[in-house]
Design a binder for these strands. Structure first.
Length: 324
DNA sequence: AAACATGGCAACCGCATCGCA
DNA sequence: TTGCGATGCGGTTGCCATGTT
């Protein structure tokens, strides 16, 4: 193949798009809508393949695309979801409105897939993002108690009662009556039963395990059902704080997916139930009678319904309870 | 100032999947 | 059920701008 822009084998032009080509493509889509890409060249005279037209539209011309650097929040989401799903760029992109799979893929390769000194670079980047997120959260959470140590701001409790698995995440903060949410008591790992998933450690590992050995971060604490569990010694508070940041920003469905992943099949079972209790939306308190806004069979939850109404930053979640 | 290295990113390629006849 | 075209996805390439030596 020759240099880009002049290769016209098979009749198709390749290489960078010109403004004139963009204009033709935009006009075509404005009249005919997306899809039927192979007809673009026939209708417009563009010497571009259908695939090329689709790619140009999806990655560059489509309205609503964000330009510029990713925010620390977006970076954090990418890290978390990549730890969860791996190179499922299109899936990850669905959680980042305005960002394309190509952009996320490029970002990941640029920032995390350095061939030289991979561990060092990942560690440095991770620390950088954690610091950014903490600074951002400090700004966002002015009304949330910050006098208590980070380690107690968010604690997780998992209990097994009467053959039921129940995992509950409690968030400290201030409710609509300005009462402090009391964190749950962290349960000692020695009490975990054989068929029981230690969600907090699992969650932590899933969020931050970047794939390779992570000597300064996650440490393996045990194996259960052929799965590995991790704790994050020394930075436990930071990690929990990071999860809280996600929730405060209303990305509830991400958390649900993460926790579904942690619990593996239990959330797909018929009798699994998810309960989400929200105390504040967009800075306005939710009446006590309406706080429990979602409680339904987990099999019906693909993406948490409340996410669509809780996109603003000021959402406060009191509890999310998973049980079966 | 020139040569080289690196980072960022748009675009291409091949394969997988989907939908329809 | 099968074949085929359209579409989607992830990996890769290569250009260009910037930084380094």
């Amino acid at each position: 193949m020759g240099s880009w822009g002049i290769c016209e084998q098979e009749g198709w032009r390749k290489g960078p798009w010109t403004p004139a080509e963009d204009k033709l493509l935009i006009e075509y889509i404005s009249h005919n809508g997306e899809g039927r890409w192979s007809f673009v060249s026939k209708c417009t005279g563009l010497k571009r393949s259908g695939k090329s037209c689709r790619l140009r539209w999806v990655n560059y011309l489509r309205p609503g695309l964000k330009k510029g650097h990713l925010t620390p929040q977006e970076e954090g989401i990418i890290i978390e979801l990549h730890a969860l799903w791996g190179n499922k760029w299109s899936t990850i992109a669905r959680y980042l409105p305005g960002r394309t799979d190509n952009e996320i893929k490029n970002y990941w390769r640029t920032h995390f897939k350095k061939k030289s000194k991979p561990d060092q670079i990942k560690q440095e980047k991770k620390k950088e993002i954690i610091i950014k997120q903490q600074q951002q959260q400090t700004d966002d959470n002015k009304n949330i108690i910050n006098k208590i140590p980070l380690a107690t701001q968010l604690l997780t409790s998992i209990e097994e009662k009467n053959n039921k698995q129940e995992a509950e995440i409690a968030f400290s903060g201030i409710d609509e009556n300005h009462h402090q949410f009391l964190p749950m008591v962290y349960q000692d790992t020695s009490s975990w039963s054989d068929n029981f998933i230690p969600m907090d450690c699992y969650l932590w590992g899933g969020l931050w395990d970047l794939g390779d050995d992570d000597p300064n971060g996650c440490s393996k604490i045990g194996t259960q059902n052929q799965d590995n569990y991790y704790s994050y010694e020394g930075e436990y508070a930071k990690g929990q704080n990071g999860i809280l940041a996600r929730l405060v920003r209303g990305t509830i469905d991400i958390l649900l997916d993460v926790i579904k992943y942690q619990l593996r099949t239990p959330m797909d079972s018929e009798d699994a139930v998810v309960t989400v209790i929200v105390s504040e939306v967009d800075g306005l308190p939710v009446e006590a009678s309406r706080q429990e806004i979602l409680q339904q069979n987990a099999t019906k939850i693909k993406h948490c319904n409340i996410n669509r109404t809780l996109h603003q930053n000021a959402t406060k979640i009191k509890h999310i309870i998973f049980s079966r």
